[in-house]
Design a protein around this nucleic acid. Structure first.
Lengths: 196, 196
DNA sequence: GCGCAAAAAGCACGTCCGTGCTATAAATGG
DNA sequence: CCATTTATAGCACGGACGTGCTTTTTGCGC
């Protein structure tokens, strides 16, 4: 990897952290330059525009998300076990994410009324994410752990709801019982789907 | 109400609409002046600072929230009926809210890492809201509809999760089945709590 | 180690930001 | 209807914004 690619990567890592705190729109080039110790123009030379930078931030975050959340789940045994790993990996991701919670969660409410390529990229990511949850829930069906008549999309919907609310409860409300509540909610969603 | 109070109110109404789209921070005085047809300074004279304006927006939104969501619920019969009315009123509020979804939802992820008086005001509002859900769920317990051993705070947590995800599913993902999914999720949360 | 390509910095631009101060216009009470 | 309070506009400020262009510094292949 050349020098340029290295700094570009370092910029993206820092930008991801900043954006998770102040939002993709709230983040500014100057602020970012200060954080990375670079000049504004030196930093800006790596990207075509602020919008392009925002899209690159999403791409960068997506890669790390796959490493830290998706891969661990796909490496654990099919079925309920895999679904639980996915959920727990996401919780860990959300807690650990650079000081500002999951960037996708923040970006979701920031961009839901801002049409454009950044929003489009985010929607693609979220769609993939939801489809992944559906797919993994379906493995619990085919393993015979979940009843065959459960609506896996509804399960994905409800699990996703818990994730969004975890960010709210943990970050905004600073509720020390947030993790406990999230896990109990997960359990009761799962329990309803189990073969009896 | 004097002329000044009238325009002040009109400003707040417009500001609420703008803020629900671009966020409390993303909204600017100039943008707001253009939307209301006033001069920047004429508008600004009604508020001490942008931060004060943001807090007033929250207060204004809270009042309308009470009118449109809380009051209808408190006017319907105690118990599960009231809980369902609360949920349905919130759904209607979220759909109808000035083009940008529920402002509290948007503000929640925008401010969860921005300490200061605006965040503090929002946290108070959210705490009140959650407590109200808890209280109303408790009426379903005392009416004998919910089992007496249910954790009403957990129920409030899970209902709130559905609300957050409704905004996500409806606004960002533009899923036409969003309402249906939200209602099904509500039903299954309730069903788990029913006396059997 | 020299020459060239790549990376970073310097600098400048037009625009919008939040925020004051001062002047004008409008509403209100007697 | 006039006087006074109140509401709005005009104007200006310092600063930060995104974005280009030009120069200087740095890294890399021969």
């Amino acid at each position: 990897m050349s020098k340029g690619d290295e700094t570009r990567d370092a910029i993206l890592t820092e930008a991801t952290s900043v954006a998770s705190k102040v939002g993709l729109t709230g983040m500014s080039i100057g602020q970012l330059a200060a954080h990375t110790g670079m000049s504004k123009s030196g930093l800006y030379a790596h990207f075509a525009s602020k919008e392009a930078l925002q899209i690159e931030i999403l791409r960068h975050t997506r890669e790390r998300f796959v490493d830290r959340v998706v891969r661990p789940a796909l490496q654990s045994p099919r079925g309920l076990n895999r679904l639980r790993t996915l959920f727990e990996s996401w919780l860990a991701w959300s807690e650990a994410f650079e000081d500002g919670g999951c960037l996708f969660v923040a970006a979701s409410s920031e961009l839901d009324d801002q049409p454009g390529p950044v929003r489009d990229a985010l929607v693609r990511d979220e769609r993939d994410w939801l489809e992944l949850i559906v797919t993994i829930a379906a493995t619990a069906v085919s393993e015979g752990e979940f009843r065959s008549d459960v609506d896996v999309e509804q399960i994905a919907y409800e699990l996703h709801a818990i994730m969004l609310n975890h960010q709210h409860t943990s970050r905004l409300m600073q509720d020390p019982r947030a993790l406990e509540r999230a896990r109990r909610a997960f359990d009761s969603i799962v329990e309803r789907a189990l073969t009896t």
